[in-house]
């Protein structure tokens, strides 16, 4: 549904997006992750034809955007981080304007439905400048859904929202997925995206570092795993013995806990338990701590870019 080929954007010698090859399949939720300034919004603006790529091509619905510009645009809905509303308008007037713009049939009914859905029907005649950030976000989402688009592009849709707002947006995304929509979400709030995305692409400094299913990506990223061992008594022999194991990278003591960093090539718990037992250690508990995507992402972008750049 969304495909880019060698997409590149340079601004006065600075490369914001470099040779980006994306492939978002029909009906999936694709998370486009990266820290601020990674090139996510630039990519979205290129997908929408708002920014002209320096190099490369964008295909939406298997067509070049400029091949069928107006019809393609009518099949896309976009929600940005900030809504940039015509604030002198009321919620109803705003949606009415865009329903006219997208030539929505039975627009009155559709606007009513969306205002009800967003919980804004009661304030439909209130000016948008009087709306809170969350309410404005809902108006933006309603605007993006007005024409029932096949592709939904969400740029940082949950940034700045309260927990309730985040939940509502997440519910909306899942609802849209159930309706068969293809959803492209850019975000830096990884823990939120992790819960809803089918596939994820990680971008940093304009380069796509990885693109895979959530589980695979986590596996690739988590080359290290932490095992917490609760011991009755921690001795220096136990620490020494564990440190000497070839799959152990580091052993640290946190009160009565030993945190052992191990490689993720296989399950090493058996060997750890037998090593501790052979040094007369009594294990009270053992817990594996997998890196969340957020942790993994921080690792990628700030400490270990080479991990993914090398594949």
């Amino acid at each position: 549904m969304i495909r880019t080929k060698g997409l590149t954007k340079c601004f006065n010698g600075f490369t914001a997006v470099k040779d980006l090859n994306l492939n978002v399949r029909k009906g999936e939720i694709y998370g486009f992750l990266g820290p601020n300034g990674a090139g996510k919004t630039t990519t979205i603006l290129m997908l929408l034809g708002i920014l002209r790529p320096t190099k490369g091509e964008v295909y939406l619905f298997e067509k070049s955007l400029y091949e069928d510009y107006f019809n393609i645009k009518r099949r896309i809905g976009v929600v940005s981080e900030k809504q940039y509303l015509y604030e002198e308008m009321t919620a109803w007037e705003y949606l009415d304007f865009f329903s006219d713009f997208y030539q929505v049939k039975n627009s009155k009914k559709r606007i009513e439905e969306l205002l009800e859905w967003a919980g804004l029907y009661g304030v439909k005649d209130k000016k948008l400048k009087q709306f809170s950030r969350g309410m404005q976000q809902k108006v933006g989402i309603a605007r993006a859904l007005l024409h029932n688009p096949e592709i939904l592009i969400l740029d940082e849709p949950i940034s700045g929202l309260d927990p309730m707002g985040i939940k509502e947006v997440r519910d909306m995304i899942e609802e849209q997925k159930q309706l068969g929509k293809t959803i492209f979400i850019s975000s830096h709030l990884l823990s939120e995206v992790e819960k809803i995305c089918d596939r994820v692409g990680i971008v940093n400094k304009g380069v796509l570092l990885a693109e895979d299913k959530m589980e695979n990506l986590k596996m690739r990223l988590s080359r290290e795993m932490e095992i917490e061992i609760e011991l009755k008594k921690i001795t220096s022999e136990i620490i020494k013995a564990l440190s000497s194991l070839d799959f152990v990278n580091k052993v640290t003591q946190e009160k009565n806990l030993l945190v052992v960093r191990v490689k993720t090539d296989k399950d090493h718990r058996d060997e750890i338990v037998s090593t501790v037992s052979s040094h007369k250690g009594v294990i009270l508990g053992l817990k594996m701590r997998e890196m969340s995507l957020e942790e993994a992402f921080v690792t990628i972008t700030h400490r270990n870019v080479s991990l993914l750049a090398g594949g």
Binding site: Y69, K73, R74, V78, Q83, F101, R143
Partner: peptide
């Protein structure tokens, strides 16, 4: 300046 033009250009306009 208000970036409302961006929202318009998400849709069918040139």
């Amino acid at each position: 300046d208000h970036r409302t033009i961006e929202v318009l250009f998400y849709g069918p306009i040139d």
